[in-house]
Design a protein around this nucleic acid. Structure first.
Lengths: 205, 205
DNA sequence: ATACTTTTGTATCGGGGACTACAATAAGTA
DNA sequence: TACTTATTGTAGTCCCCGATACAAAAGTAT
């Protein structure tokens, strides 16, 4: 099967360890020395397996989206758009409150602002945030097609609002907000939901 | 008046130049070399005038709150709580769209996640965000006392929601959102305003 | 065995990070 | 004019950054 000396570490475990560091300290705040220590490998092994710091981060990012951040696509499977957003928020809060990893979302914590060297990472995170917004927007479009949302709802605007609240939750979580506080924020954020009978035109126009 | 050789640069101008760098690249992403270049001074002058990188950042932060971010206390002077929040959002959008400086809010961009060396800066920013939230909450309390908001409104929760949207706007602005997009988000965010006659109990309990 | 291939460990590399020593300079003060 | 005080400019400090060279180790293939 394998040629040459076999790898002595688990790639996924190493990625998970790297994820925790990038998540907590951001891309620029995470050093290679701290990475190799946490991953339990030495520097040449890291470079042989993951390329360099930037490509390592991007693989960590993929891992993040598949494992702890999979609550977003999962939430979109809910039967109604309203339930989907509720599940999106509760999933985000559950993740933020999980003591096994840092608070907030890696798409926000990773590199909101950065030096020129990390511009590529910053751009990648920005694209991923836009992709998340697009996924929610597509869910809303499906909801309109299914009669679940009023047809005059502007799906792009509603999705952008929902994601703005989601990113804001990430900032609040980084500041040490409690689960109850975050939940109350999401409850307020959903009170202008367009499907609610008395305010069907809320997100319209 | 002054003893010794007089300073050859304007402290405020230098702080403004440093502000632009910290704002765009974050605390960790800004190097002393780039700072001295932008400020037009050399390294010993920087240390003599501002202490070190961390104390420089904190002075820059004060400057930021007084000059470009003064829209928040200004907005709180509006006659009603609703108008105050509208002004808060429009002020934030105006600042984000000003081409003379970076997008987003320094309280968010400065250091959401960071390495251990910048923990003090991260904590300081977190405190300032909490202070901003408290200022809005106090404005809501005044609004209740003045009959401007229903007495059963939970001011802390409503303020936290408003600030969550504000921080979310900062993330969206960092991602390149347009003025129209940000404005639409704030319009949606205000549709569940508790003073609105048909939904006076929205933010309550 | 021997050759070949890949990973591992050690020991670096050049570069840039924040920060400072020190002498020259430019003002006020005697 | 000499003295004092503070800033400026040059040069350099130490240290950690991301990234590598190279030989020993541990497997497969012949």
């Amino acid at each position: 099967m394998h040629k040459g000396r076999p790898r002595e570490f688990d790639v996924q475990k190493a990625l998970d360890a790297a994820l925790l560091l990038f998540w907590r300290h951001g891309y620029e705040g995470t050093s290679l020395a701290s990475l190799t220590t946490a991953m339990g490998i030495n520097v040449p092994s890291l470079y042989a397996a993951f390329g360099n710091k930037e490509t390592l981060f991007k693989k960590v990012l993929e891992r993040y989206l598949q494992n702890p951040a999979s609550y977003l696509p999962k939430a979109m499977e809910q039967p109604t758009a309203r339930r989907a957003v509720e599940k999106l928020f509760s999933g985000a809060i559950d993740m933020a409150m999980n003591p096994r990893h840092p608070s907030g979302c890696l798409l926000v914590q990773g590199a909101l602002a950065s030096g020129p060297a990390a511009a590529s990472v910053r751009k990648e995170l920005s694209l991923r945030r836009a992709a998340a917004e697009a996924a929610v927007r597509r869910r809303f479009e499906r909801a309109i097609a299914q009669g679940d949302l009023p047809a005059n709802v502007n799906t792009a605007r509603l999705a952008r609002y929902i994601l703005t609240v989601l990113w804001g939750l990430s900032v609040q979580a980084a500041g040490g907000a409690t689960r109850a506080q975050l939940r109350q924020v999401t409850q307020l954020a959903l009170q202008n939901w367009p499907a609610s009978p008395s305010r069907a035109r809320s997100a319209a126009e």
